[in-house]
Nucleic acid binder design. Structure first.
Lengths: 238, 238
DNA sequence: TATAATTGTGTATAGGTTACACAGTGGTAT
DNA sequence: ATACCACTGTGTAACCTATACACAATTATA
């Protein structure tokens, strides 16, 4: 006797669809950065079991779409944005994780410039929440959020992805605030500047901040010539 | 109109089971270490499309078992081993990845002491292959293997998990050979020793190697008192 | 024109990583 | 028993990276 995988899908389906009682979904942790806080886009759960609780944005995967495509679809649907940074993190498959039945869910996180999203906020079930202030979520979504935040934290130590959270032009102070918000630490300003200039991730725009009540800082943008793909999208599995 | 996830599973099932046409499987990259080579346990594919090609060990997930449990089941079935190190890595969900139908597969890797497994090798469809010599596999399993190897490489830089690949007692030379095999680099012997003693991961057994045709090295074991859980198992998502 | 707030800059110290050579020990062959 | 072989076991100096830290310059504002 072989394992189930060794029979064909057609055989399995005709047998009794025992193996087709599991649904698969994607859940997206959509990060944004605003007022020096890292935020995540949440929606009110409409399941009776999780009435009035917030949950991540997700949907079931359709039989004819790739896993990544399902995430992009959710993002596009909820933010109106194409062309975003998206990374798969982990798949949550506890039997009991969804009260209505067996749903295995693959978690992604995505980084967007929160300003690009404002218009769609007319949907009043959607809200940006400071990550630090979230203590509970529907389903196992708090664990998913924590897992994605950890991945983001380790990812930014090596990879130039935080730029996806910023407008095209930004000051070094904004960039440092962002790192501090994600990592939850304070950093030394001089060392931070030194490190970034050495890494050569930044391109000097020869412009200054506007409308700040103090000496304005220089504006930079992400050094696109060093990273020809521009902002990285959906890296292959790490 | 909501998304599919907002309806209940019962509703979905009764509608037309559109969302229950996807099967989910686990694939296990089972690593071992023998003759100074990193090896992986493979099985001959019995699908017509991949006749005579090797593939990873996997199976469909049953509706009533957790994702992790499915991996453990596959491992137990194929190696006879309980109590192994197992880590989820990535979920592969391309629509076309399985020729017989839509199967989304979550990849795990596992580390076992190859000597513990020898008896079960009577199953002649199973074979240990040097990772370095594998160029193609059935399905997308070569990509899965590469992904798991990369994860293993980055994991051992920080975490004491390689001990799962070794017998209880081992020499520093064996340990270094193992690191070199996994990372694909040569290391300096003195610096390697210094680093390990500083990390305090090792416990001196006050015994010497036997049956080596040269000066025998001291034997060590993994410092279980510093890591009370013994060899780490199935860490939570990173 | 003085004050407040922030930007922009360099150096010294500590800590970790790398490179590197020789004496000691057990096994083996003569 | 002796010589040889192959490996183990050990320390130090050079280098590089990360950290700690203070003051002058600039703009907005009162």
């Amino acid at each position: 006797m072989g394992t189930a995988l060794q029979r064909t899908i057609q055989q399995l389906r005709s047998e009794d669809s025992e193996f087709f009682q599991i649904a698969i979904s994607v859940d997206c942790v959509i990060f944004g950065f605003d007022k020096n806080e890292l935020k995540v886009l949440l929606i009110k759960s409409d399941l009776e079991e999780f009435k009035d609780q917030w949950s991540l944005l997700g949907d079931l995967v359709r039989p004819d779409e790739n896993l990544d495509s399902a995430s992009y679809r959710v993002l596009k649907h909820r933010t109106g944005l194409d062309d975003v940074y998206l990374e798969q993190v982990y798949t949550f498959g506890e039997v009991t994780r969804h009260p209505a039945g067996r749903v295995i869910s693959t978690a992604y996180y995505s980084l967007i410039n929160i300003k690009d999203h404002q218009p769609v906020l007319s949907d009043n079930e959607l809200h940006w929440h400071p990550v630090n202030e979230i203590t509970t979520l529907a389903f196992d979504h708090k664990i998913i959020l924590d897992t994605c935040l950890q991945r983001l934290q380790s990812k930014i130590e090596e990879h130039p992805i935080v730029f996806n959270l910023l407008p095209e032009k930004f000051s070094l102070r904004e960039l440092q605030n962002l790192y501090e918000a994600i990592l939850g630490v304070k950093m030394d300003r001089r060392n931070f500047r030194k490190k970034f200039f050495l890494m050569n991730w930044l391109e000097d725009m020869n412009e200054l901040e506007q409308d700040v009540p103090h000496r304005p800082g220089k504006l930079y943008r992400f050094n696109t010539s060093r990273f020809p793909n521009g902002k990285m999208k959906t890296p292959m599995p790490v």
